[in-house]
Structure formats: structure tokens, C-alpha cells
């Protein structure tokens, strides 16, 4: 059981989104959808959850008359992600012992 793992991050799609965003400055919604192979609806819901947690920033604008949504990770998100990875590492180290 992962009692100490952040429940916001400990989900397949949200973790994938955060892992993508941790390594880039910002990414378009379509890019995240393409890389995670998620449906637009499901991805929107998960992005909203990450945004509500303060882990990511969502910027909505218009580009060539089309809506453009870009996401970027926040300082709080980076801290949460690092904490999550450290917790994972400790679980893996416990497994090895």
C-alpha cells in the first residue's frame, strides 16, 4: 500500500501529465494528449484536478482564431513531484531489503 504517496499524483494519467511537465517549460494541451494517449475529456478533468491542487498553471488563449491551452508546472507542483519520487524510491529500497 502507498499510504504516504500523494493521492493527487498517484494516478496514472495525472502522474503522466506531471512527468511530462516537469521536464519542459510549458506544453500545449494537444501535446499532452498526444503523449499520454488520453481522451480530451478525461485529460481535461485530470488537468483541472492538478490545477485545483496548485500543481500546474493552465493558460487559455487564442491562436489563429483557435483556442490554445498551455500548461506548466508550478513551484508547488515541482515540490510535490520531488516528494512523490522520494517516497517511491524509499518503497523500492524497502522492497530490495
Amino acid at each position: 500500500m502507498f499510504k504516504d504517496l500523494d493521492p493527487i499524483l498517484h494516478s496514472q494519467l495525472r502522474l503522466a501529465v506531471m512527468s511530462l511537465l516537469i521536464s519542459v517549460k510549458e506544453a500545449e494541451f494537444t501535446f499532452i494528449r498526444e503523449k499520454t494517449k488520453a481522451t480530451a475529456g478525461n485529460l481535461s478533468v485530470q488537468i483541472q484536478k492538478l490545477k485545483d491542487a496548485g500543481y500546474i498553471e493552465v493558460n487559455k488563449q487564442f491562436k489563429d482564431n483557435y483556442p490554445l491551452t498551455t500548461c506548466s508546472i508550478t513551484k508547488k507542483g515541482i515540490d510535490a513531484f520531488e516528494k512523490y519520487v522520494k517516497a517511491l524510491q524509499s518503497y523500492l529500497n524497502t522492497d530490495k531489503k
Binding site: S11, Q12, L13, L15, A16, S19, L92
Partner: peptide, 15 residues
């Protein structure tokens, strides 16, 4: 990618 599938630590690391 689905969302609420339970994850193991190895799956998390793989993601």
C-alpha cells in the same frame, strides 16, 4: 491512458 487504475511503485516509475 486511463486514470484510476491502481498503480504499483514500478508502474509509477515506468510512467
Amino acid at each position: 491512458m486511463k486514470n484510476e487504475t491502481p498503480l504499483t511503485e514500478h508502474e509509477s516509475l515506468n510512467i
